[in-house]
Design a protein around this nucleic acid. Sequence first.
RNA 1: GGCGCUAUCGUCUAAGGGUUAGGACAGGGCCCUCUCAAGGCUCAGAUCGGGGUUCGAAUCCCCGUAGCGCUACCA
Length: 479
Amino acid sequence: MVRVRFAPSPTGFLHIGGARTYIFNWLFARSQGGRVILRVDDTDARRNTEESLESILDGLSWLELPWDERHHQSTRRELHAQAAASLLANGHAYRDFTPETEASPATRGTAPWLCNPGMRELSSAASDRRAAAGEPFVLRFRVPREQAGGVPFRDLVLKKQFRRFSDIEDFALLRSNGQPTYHLASSVDDADLAITHVIRGQDHLANTFKHLLLLQALGYEAPRFGHIPLLLGPDGTKLSKRLHGDLVSVTNYRDMGFLPVGLVNYLSLLGWSPKDNREVLTVADLLAAFRVERVLRTNARVRFGSGKDASEVDPKAVWLNGQHMRKMPVAELLPLASRALRTAGLWSEDFADGRREWFAGALEDLRSRLSLLSELGSRCRAYFADDFATVGKARTNLDKAGVRPMLGILAARLERAERFDEASVEAEIRGLAAERGVKPGLLINGSRAALTGQPVGPSAFRVFTILGRARAVRRLRAV
RNA sequence: GGCGCUAUCGUCUAAGGGUUAGGACAGGGCCCUCUCAAGGCUCAGAUCGGGGUUCGAAUCCCCGUAGCGCUACCA
């Protein structure tokens, strides 16, 4: 049984790099009937925050790729402590009493640091005595550098990997406050939670050799590792909360009006592709096509915050989202759309009950023009509310000679017309245009402007029927 | 500095020895048309440099170069 884990540390919001790691893990596991474990790596108590955890959970659940189990490292301290003790007992670890201040990396930059002088050689008697006396220490792993070999492993993505013992430093297992470090906690938990595959960013590659050493010393069977390429910002550096800000937060994409599948599709195409030129992929499509071995080894640059216009994200992400907006079944779009209207303050329970059909119909006409859900509440406001602004170009259409009076006449005729449907409205408009000797477009565009405040949108005749006779007539008169 | 990963259009990518180096987004143009989209067609645009191996290299090897990552008592 395949078991993967995603292990965020609650020190900030979930950014799209983390989300992509989660997505790759999820696709890998679920495509072969495996389970997805969410493990909150909160070993560094100083840096963890509750808000961060919430926002990570928020972002993750929004993706609609559910996990199967959830664990917190902070509740598994006992396990970590036991592992540390056994490592110390069997000589795989030693106490390093070097004060933190003296261990400053000031001397680095020339030769690589491997361990602090004198500490490896301390006799266990001396070590025990100093520890018993209350002297603080860091517990370090004793890398077998006296041996000639190294650590080999076969990476799921990078294939054959090898690192000499002599290039691996004696990494910390326990901090001087007794808390486990990431290396210890992560390796022990991976083993204890029976994780079979660890899929993580390439920035962890150097750690993997340490973890392999640790797992072996502990007598655990190691999981398979796969290191996926990193997501880089427009500046070419690893995506980070600090450098790239809220712009890269998953919740930012949500708030911009992305569909979960839109973002999932976009992120899955960064560093991976189905190799057959398909790009618009549903989660089912992704599940069927995803292969970890086919993940690329090259980092991908994510475009965002390009500057001048409002498009602060990769236009391709927006395009993909638009594709999903018009291709997914309306029934699936409906709840997402109502949520978008709700956040825009335009939701009416009416849409859910009696006018569900109407809502679906309106969406059907609107969605081919939209890329983001949020446009429902902005550009499409007039379809869902009576208070809407008339934009400049729409005003221009209304200001053209004779348009307003003709719209008034049109309003009167439509009000007492026998029928009110697309065909009859079109007939009225074209008839009136012919009478007045003007181009139908003048009235058509004028109508759209009067009815929606926009120069653009669905067929003007359709707009009449979406709004209904009463509202349409009222709006024609209002201009 | 050390160790490692990588290198195809502006961006995301396809081509795992033989193709006019393909697709998508973005950009230009055309068609459709009541507007805007959508859709269809089309133009422009790339193999980092140098050496090998080979009849033949984007693809394999080496050397440069560049980018990125790691080099914590962060994860």
